[in-house]
Design a protein around this nucleic acid. Sequence first.
DNA 1: ATCGCTGCAAAAATTTTGCAGGTAA
DNA 2: TTACCTGCAAAATTTTTGCAGCGAT
Lengths: 151, 151
Amino acid sequence: MKMDAPCNSPRPEKLADLTGKLRAKSRKITGPRQAILEVLRQHRHPLTNKEILATLAAGNCDLATVYRSMHLLENMGMVKRFDFGDGVARFELLGEGEDGHHHHLICTECSAVVEIEECFPCALEQTIAASNGFKAITHKLEFFGICPQCQ
Amino acid sequence: MKMDAPCNSPRPEKLADLTGKLRAKSRKITGPRQAILEVLRQHRHPLTNKEILATLAAGNCDLATVYRSMHLLENMGMVKRFDFGDGVARFELLGEGEDGHHHHLICTECSAVVEIEECFPCALEQTIAASNGFKAITHKLEFFGICPQCQ
DNA sequence: ATCGCTGCAAAAATTTTGCAGGTAA
DNA sequence: TTACCTGCAAAATTTTTGCAGCGAT
């Protein structure tokens, strides 16, 4: 089960829309950045920086540049960071106006990833915030299990 | 806000009970292991391996030994690993018969930790499992916000 | 007397940073 | 031209592992 290449989610933005966001913030539109954005656009799953690098056409980009680009895109709100608890960061491109808040169901055998639409704790965040005096509450939630193919 | 030293959770086991579990599995009861268990027993919060080492009485234990001990205790089900998304593993001692399934509310400013008793996704795990054909489902959930003192 | 455990050191793996040169604007 | 960006290399962090010797049983 690879669940990779073609994606189920909509792909609302063209590469030009993405680079436009860079331009709007006076960031330069370079070769590596375009290539990275294109990889993210075509693989709408959480990807590690190494996976992004490996997918890049001619390997014509340094790993350090991928790290720096992901920091930039994360700060610009174009990408969301996910953490599957294995000590490696993963990134997913966000659609227009999307806040990126969703969760995943991850196979512990083959690492297949299914996106989960429902977000249960969302409605209860305010309750938790109020009863503990916290503000600006967010949460991270990921599910783990064994997918049909691996059973 | 440090929320450290004294703990609100019950402390149902004495050190002898913990070492007894080691003995029951033919593991040796050594100085470092007793010291580590005592630290975990007195600080019932998720602790990093470095924090455990620093809290150890005379620093008379190697960091590699802490890592190896936490692997052992995790495999024996005496300790649960938590991941706050900052790339560092944290461990918390489990009480007798406890499965350790609970979540935390973490201050993004000062790292204060509050334990959350309720587990909302638990009831819905089966639904998610069924609709995706997954088995053996678990989840990780942590909340983040700004605590009263840091606001 | 075993066999497991520890300390020390080195290695792995992920991520960050310094710097000199190159490129988009 | 100017400021930003890139590649390369080195460093910083977290975690794992090899190995010789010590220690619990």
